[in-house]
Structure formats: structure tokens, C-alpha cells
């Protein structure tokens, strides 16, 4: 069971009145960080709720740490740490009270690590939760999840609404968790800069469908914008794997999701510039391309 994939979704479907998540496949292995990226309403939170057992799929299978979900959620949850920005701690209780509470439930609670995190995040155990800022509240939630040393961390928009310094502190903790190759993190985010930096795998979803899920380096290697200058009247050579073209006078910009050096040889002297694309550019181009392909 220790060799089981940390997250395994196959053909998952979940229908609501105004929204359907369809045909979702997703894999996360031990030792990896996966970034889940999608526009608002894409189905990120639904996906996370299916993985954490808060929702049951209408069709398909959801397995987490080798356990079928949601049936075996009690077992799986011992090893899952979950933080969402919608979560609320008890406002009248102190941070320390929550630490004692979590420690009494989870055998894996590491008091030393908890103390280290409290210090690093500059939290005060004696402080009541109602006096915490948004950033401190998120840090307290993360401290409570991290100090249990769960094998799988699931973070729903963990860095949203945080200042740059707090984001930096959080990313440091996330990558620190991965020093241990038996652990993994799934996090959803709108911040493609954070995702590009720390993710090993990236999953794009849009309007309830999977757009693409693969290694980050694959995305960055396969997508390019190629700028050409075509003499007036000359025809563009036929090329496969071009998913976008924009023409402005003599200048043509091609977008490809399967870049290779052969492509440049084929285009020859017309090539003016070749640009790598940021994850954000890849995300937007990818989503627009898939919407077009589906006729939406």
C-alpha cells in the first residue's frame, strides 16, 4: 500500500444542477507537488472535495493513498492534511488550544516541529483566533496541518490574499516538506507564478473538464511562440501541431504545443524569433484552444 499512488482519479463524474465535472483523470505520485490550475468555477474545489471524501463521485473511481474514497475516508484522513481558505478556526479559542486539540486526535503530531513552525510563522499560542489577521489565520491552519506530518497535503488556494512575504514563507515550507520523498502536496491556485515555481506536475481544468495534466518541464518545453516574417504574397508552409496563428502584414505569430527543432528547419529563413512561454501564457492559450476545439 505504501507504493500506491497518492492520488488516483479515473473517469470521475460529478453532476450538480448547474455544473458537471466530467471524465476527470488525475495521478499524483509520492514525492511530488501538483499544482491544480483553472479559472473561477472550473471545478477545482469540487475536485478537491472528491479527493478529500467530502463528496462522492457519480461515476468513476477516486483512490487516495491506496484507499477508495469516500468509503475509506476515515482511514485515508489520518494521513491527509487539508487546508482551505474557507476553513475557520474557533474564534473564541486560542492558537494553543487548537494545537492541543489536534495533538489529541492525531498520533503523528510532532510537538517539536509544531514549535518550530509557530516560531517561523511568528504565531503566539496564547493569542485568541479572533485577533488574527487573514495571513496569520492561514499560517495557523497550515501549522496545524503540517505538524501532523501527513503523507499527503491538500491545499485549496493556500496563498490567495496573502502578502508577498507570507507567500514566500509558505512556499518555503511546502518545498521543505518535499525533502521527504514519501510525501506529496496537491495545491490549487490562481497564482501561476507560484505554481510554475514549485510544482512537479501541473493539471489545468476548465468548465468541469480536464484540459491537460503533465510534468511541468514538459509544458515549458513543448509550448513556443514562433515569429515569422513572410515576404508579401508567399504562402505559409503547412505545419502540423500549430494551434494558433495571428497574421499582421508580413509578420505571422505561430503558437505550438509540440515544439521541435525540426519545425524551425522546416520554416527556414522566415523565422525571426522563438519565444518560450510562461506558465500563465501556456494556461490561457491551452484553455482557449480547448474551448475552441469543443466548439464553445
Amino acid at each position: 500500500m505504501n507504493h500506491a499512488k497518492h492520488i488516483e482519479l479515473a473517469g470521475v463524474r460529478k453532476k450538480f444542477r448547474f455544473f458537471t465535472l466530467e471524465n476527470l483523470d488525475l495521478d499524483l505520485e509520492a514525492g511530488q507537488i501538483m499544482g491544480l490550475v483553472g479559472p473561477n468555477g472550473a471545478g477545482k474545489s469540487t475536485t478537491i472535495r472528491l479527493i478529500t471524501g467530502l463528496l462522492a463521485a457519480d461515476a468513476g473511481t477516486v483512490r487516495v493513498l491506496g484507499h477508495g474514497m469516500p468509503e475509506a475516508q476515515a482511514l485515508a484522513k489520518r494521513d491527509i492534511g487539508f487546508v482551505s481558505d474557507e476553513m475557520k478556526l474557533f474564534s473564541h479559542a486560542t492558537v494553543g488550544w487548537h494545537m492541543d486539540f489536534v495533538a489529541s486526535i492525531y498520533a503523528g503530531w510532532d510537538p517539536q516541529y509544531a514549535a518550530t513552525l509557530v516560531k517561523r510563522f511568528n504565531l503566539k499560542p496564547e493569542q485568541p483566533v479572533k485577533g488574527l489577521s487573514h495571513g496569520e489565520h492561514v499560517k495557523a491552519l497550515l501549522m496545524l496541518a503540517l505538524a501532523r506530518r501527513p503523507r499527503l497535503l491538500i491545499l485549496d488556494e493556500p496563498t490567495s490574499g496573502l502578502d508577498p512575504v507570507a507567500r514566500h514563507e509558505l512556499l518555503t515550507e511546502f518545498t521543505d516538506v518535499l525533502r521527504d520523498d514519501s510525501r506529496s502536496i496537491l495545491f490549487s491556485s490562481h497564482n501561476t507564478l507560484d505554481v510554475e515555481r514549485i510544482s512537479d506536475r501541473i493539471t489545468f481544468i476548465d468548465r468541469g473538464r480536464l484540459v491537460e495534466s503533465r510534468d511541468k518541464e514538459d509544458f515549458l518545453e513543448r509550448w513556443r511562440r514562433i515569429q515569422l516574417q513572410m515576404p508579401a504574397g508567399s504562402a505559409l508552409p503547412e505545419l502540423p501541431d500549430i494551434i494558433g496563428r495571428a497574421v499582421d502584414g508580413q509578420f505571422v505569430t505561430l503558437t505550438t504545443n509540440r515544439f521541435s527543432a525540426d519545425m524551425l528547419t522546416h520554416l527556414g529563413t522566415a523565422v525571426r524569433e522563438v519565444h518560450r512561454m510562461s506558465l500563465e501564457e501556456i494556461f490561457v492559450a491551452n484553455v482557449m484552444h480547448h474551448r475552441e476545439a469543443r466548439g464553445e
Binding site: 518555503t172 518545498t175 525533502r179 506536475r201 510534468d215 511541468k216 518541464e217
Partner: peptide, 17 residues
């Protein structure tokens, strides 16, 4: 690879590459 990734706050796959 994992130590450098954590130090640089980048993904393991990037350092591996």
C-alpha cells in the same frame, strides 16, 4: 536534488532536469 530544490524553493523536477 531534494535538498537543493527545498533550498531554492523550486520543484524537484526542475533540479532533476
Amino acid at each position: 536534488i531534494r535538498a537543493l530544490a527545498a533550498d531554492l524553493r523550486v520543484s524537484v523536477i526542475t533540479v532533476k532536469r
